[in-house]
Amino acid sequence: MKKEKWLFIGKDPRIKKSAILIDTHEREIMHIESGEWTLELEDLCRNMQPNCIVFPIQPLDAVKDIDYTCIPKETVMFFGRVAGPWKSVSELFTSYFYLQDEQFIWQNAKLTAEGWVAAFYKLNQQSISGKTFHITGFGRVAKMLANILKSMGAKVFIFVRSEANACEAKAYGYDAAILTPQRFAKEPISWLLNTIPAPWFTEDYLKLSTKEMILYDLASAPGCLREVDLKDRYELMPGIPGEYFADDAAVLLSDTINQLYNLEKE
C-alpha cells in the first residue's frame, strides 16, 4: 500500500509535535522548521509530491513569488490564517482552515487564556487576585480570559466596539463600555489585554494612558498598535498555546486535522 506523504511547515513547537502525533504506518511525515516559503521548499515539494501540507497559524512569509505548480493539484492543504498571496494559493487547492473549526477555536482560546496567566506570573511575579484587568474585545479569547481572571479573584472590565457586545459582557456580569478615547481616559488602567485583531491603539490612546499601563497584545500579528511605540510597556504575544502548552496544543491541532481530513475522504 502506497503511503500518504504529509509535509508540516512552521517554527511553532505545536507543528513539530503535531507531525509526530499524526504519524501512522500509512503515512510518511516530514517537518520543515521554517517561517518562510523558499526555493528549497519548492524543490522539496517537487521531489516529495506531498498528499497533504499543514501550514502554521500565521501565514508563511513569501521571500519570492509562490510557484504553486510545484505542488500536486490533488494536494490537500490545512491552514490557520491566510493573507496576501496565500489566499490565492488556498483557492487553487482543496483547503481546510483549522482556525475556523469551532472546537479548535474554543479549545485554543482556553489554552491561550491559561497560558497568558502563566506568562503574567513569569513576567510580573505578582498575584492576580485583587487586581483589575481591562480587556478589549469580547470574542472567544476575551471570554476565556475574563472567566479565568474573575475566578481567580480579579476584577474585569471589558472594552468593546459595539453596543451589542457591551450588553453581552454586562449580561455575563462584567463592567463594560464602548471603546473610545474619551471612555478609555476614565479608567485607571494598569493591565490592558487586547484581543481585537486590528490596529486601534493610536497616539490618542497613548496620550490618555497612564505611565504604569502595560499592554499585552494577544491578537494576531501585527497587533493593535497604530504608529505608536510603547517600548517596554508592550508585549505582543501571538501563539501562546504553542509556547506554553506545546503538547496540549499539538494534540488539539492533530485531532482537528485528522477530523477535517477524514471528512475529505468520506
Score class of each variant (00 low, 15 high):
196 I>P: 00
214 I>A: 10
21 L>A: 05
7 L>P: 00
178 I>V: 10
24 T>D: 13
87 K>P: 04
142 A>K: 02
47 N>I: 09
156 V>K: 07
11 K>V: 09
2 K>Q: 15
16 K>C: 08
13 P>C: 01
165 N>Y: 12
189 I>D: 01
209 S>R: 09
167 C>Y: 11
241 P>A: 09
255 D>R: 12
104 F>G: 01
261 Y>N: 08
250 A>T: 07
214 I>Y: 12
124 N>W: 10
113 A>S: 10
24 T>M: 07
147 N>S: 14
151 S>V: 07
36 E>K: 15
105 I>H: 02
167 C>V: 10
179 L>N: 02
148 I>C: 02
217 D>E: 03
202 T>Y: 06
129 S>N: 13
224 C>E: 02
13 P>F: 05
16 K>Q: 12
138 F>C: 03
1 M>W: 12
35 G>A: 13
125 Q>G: 08
38 T>I: 06
224 C>W: 05
243 E>F: 12
73 K>L: 14
2 K>D: 11
93 F>A: 03
135 I>P: 02
33 E>S: 15
21 L>K: 07
103 Q>A: 10
194 N>H: 05
112 T>P: 00
149 L>G: 04
216 Y>M: 09
55 F>R: 02
249 A>T: 06
49 Q>W: 06
180 T>M: 08
217 D>P: 02
136 T>I: 03
244 Y>D: 00
55 F>S: 03
118 A>Q: 14
187 E>V: 15
212 E>Y: 10
211 K>V: 10
76 V>W: 06
159 F>T: 02
20 I>S: 10
176 A>R: 05
177 A>M: 12
73 K>P: 08
187 E>D: 13
85 P>Q: 14
73 K>W: 09
264 E>Q: 13
239 G>C: 00
34 S>K: 13
243 E>Y: 11
173 G>A: 06
143 K>T: 09
141 V>F: 01
24 T>K: 11
74 E>K: 14
25 H>S: 09
45 C>G: 06
30 M>S: 15
9 I>P: 00
163 E>A: 11
252 L>V: 06
71 I>Y: 04
154 A>N: 05
70 C>I: 11
241 P>Q: 07
210 T>N: 14
201 F>S: 01
238 P>K: 06
18 S>I: 08
100 Q>T: 14
116 W>R: 01
263 L>F: 13
248 D>P: 03
2 K>C: 13
109 A>R: 01
237 M>D: 02
174 Y>G: 03
83 A>Y: 14
184 F>R: 04
205 Y>C: 00
115 G>P: 01
74 E>P: 03
228 V>W: 05
264 E>M: 09
242 G>I: 02
86 W>E: 03
159 F>H: 06
8 F>K: 05
232 D>Y: 09
160 V>E: 11
180 T>W: 08
74 E>L: 07
30 M>L: 15
261 Y>I: 07
207 K>M: 12
251 V>I: 13
212 E>P: 04
222 P>H: 09
107 Q>Y: 15
59 P>R: 09
201 F>L: 05
94 T>M: 10
108 N>F: 01
161 R>K: 14
192 L>T: 02
96 Y>I: 00
5 K>Y: 07
104 F>P: 00
191 W>P: 00
164 A>M: 10
222 P>D: 06
94 T>I: 14
